[in-house]
Simulated assay, not measured.
Amino acid sequence: MITFVNTFEVHGTVAEFEEAFEKTSGFFSARPGFLNHRLLRHVDRPAQYVNVAEWESREHFEQALKHPDFVPHAKALRALSTSSPNLYDTVLERRAAAEGSPRP
């Protein structure tokens, strides 16, 4: 699994950005290897967003980016924001213990 993290600074309207991102989300969710994603908005700076997406592999993610139908999505987001995309491997993951379970 690979994690894609992309930070956005919106210079268009927030509503336009969220609408464009929703359409992009639909595109990616239909691609092979897509697992899930979350779009997060900064609590104190509403023009800052972070997208965290999980893919089965780097190859699946890169194939989605090369798909010709991605071009209009990329253009729409670039017209409304600047971004900083990066790929990450998971090094450590921990979940909360179930209630009533002893904690180490």
Rank of each mutant, 00 (worst) to 15 (best):
M1Y: 12
I2Q: 05
T3G: 00
T3M: 02
T3C: 00
F4R: 15
F4H: 15
V5K: 01
F8L: 10
F8W: 15
V10Q: 08
V10L: 07
H11S: 09
H11R: 14
G12K: 13
G12A: 11
T13R: 12
T13C: 06
T13I: 05
V14W: 13
A15Q: 14
E18C: 11
A20Q: 07
A20G: 02
F21V: 12
E22S: 11
K23E: 13
T24I: 09
T24D: 10
G26P: 00
G26V: 13
F27G: 02
F27L: 06
S29N: 11
A30F: 07
A30V: 05
A30D: 10
R31W: 10
R31V: 05
P32Y: 10
G33R: 07
G33A: 10
G33Q: 09
F34I: 09
F34Y: 15
L35N: 08
L35D: 05
L35R: 14
N36G: 10
N36K: 14
H37N: 11
H37R: 14
H37C: 07
R38V: 10
L39P: 03
L40P: 00
R41K: 11
H42R: 11
H42V: 04
V43D: 09
V43C: 02
D44S: 09
D44G: 15
R45T: 14
A47P: 00
Q48M: 05
Y49V: 05
V52I: 15
V52D: 01
A53L: 05
E54F: 07
E54Y: 06
W55C: 01
E56I: 01
S57D: 11
S57C: 06
R58M: 10
E59H: 04
E59V: 08
H60R: 02
F61Q: 12
F61G: 00
E62F: 08
E62L: 14
Q63K: 09
A64N: 03
A64L: 02
L65V: 05
K66Y: 03
P68D: 02
F70G: 01
F70N: 14
V71Y: 03
P72I: 03
P72V: 02
H73F: 09
A74E: 07
K75L: 13
K75C: 04
A76K: 14
L77W: 07
R78S: 02
A79S: 07
L80A: 06
L80V: 08
L80H: 10
N86Y: 09
N86M: 10
V91K: 01
V91G: 00
V91M: 07
L92N: 01
E93S: 02
R94N: 12
R95G: 00
A96H: 06
A97M: 04
A98G: 01
A98E: 13
E99T: 15
G100F: 03
G100H: 04
R103W: 01
P104D: 13
P104H: 13
